[in-house]
């Protein structure tokens, strides 16, 4: 089903434009806003992007290893919790969803680094 032109226009209006382009296989550092009582601070969540969902309600999943334990966080693109996203490096991947990384540990979970041009 195609998207209604009005919805498309509205989605474009609500969309965030300050997040750089990145793709599955990129390592990103997401600055997450954390509220502690009255104060707000930033916390970095650094890991590999293993999935992206496009569209007006899109989100991306970041996976990292934290003390030998795999941790994944899903961020909506338009979320106010996401303060900033920095792309750190890119790896060569041949699929859009890297869920196979979940079953791999250590050396097996390595990927080959590539220079990816910003598209």
């Amino acid at each position: 089903m195609s998207i209604h032109p009005i919805m498309q226009k509205l989605a474009a209006k609500l969309e965030r434009t300050d997040i750089p382009a990145f793709a599955p296989g990129d390592t990103v550092r997401v600055q997450v806003k954390i509220r502690e009582g009255e104060k707000e601070r930033l916390q970095a969540f650094e890991g590999i992007v293993i999935a992206c969902r496009k569209g007006p309600q899109g989100s991306f999943t970041v996976r990292k290893m934290s003390f030998g334990q795999g941790v994944e966080r899903i961020f909506p693109y338009n979320s106010k919790v996401v303060d900033k996203v920095e792309k750190i490096r890119s790896y060569e991947v041949r699929r859009a969803k890297l869920f196979y990384l979940r079953g791999l540990r250590g050396k097996a979970a390595r990927l080959r680094e590539v220079e990816r041009r910003a598209s």
Binding site: H4, M7, Q57
Partner: peptide, 9 residues
Amino acid sequence: VGMTQMFDE
């Protein structure tokens, strides 16, 4: 027209 979602302040 349809439904979507929106983040508040």
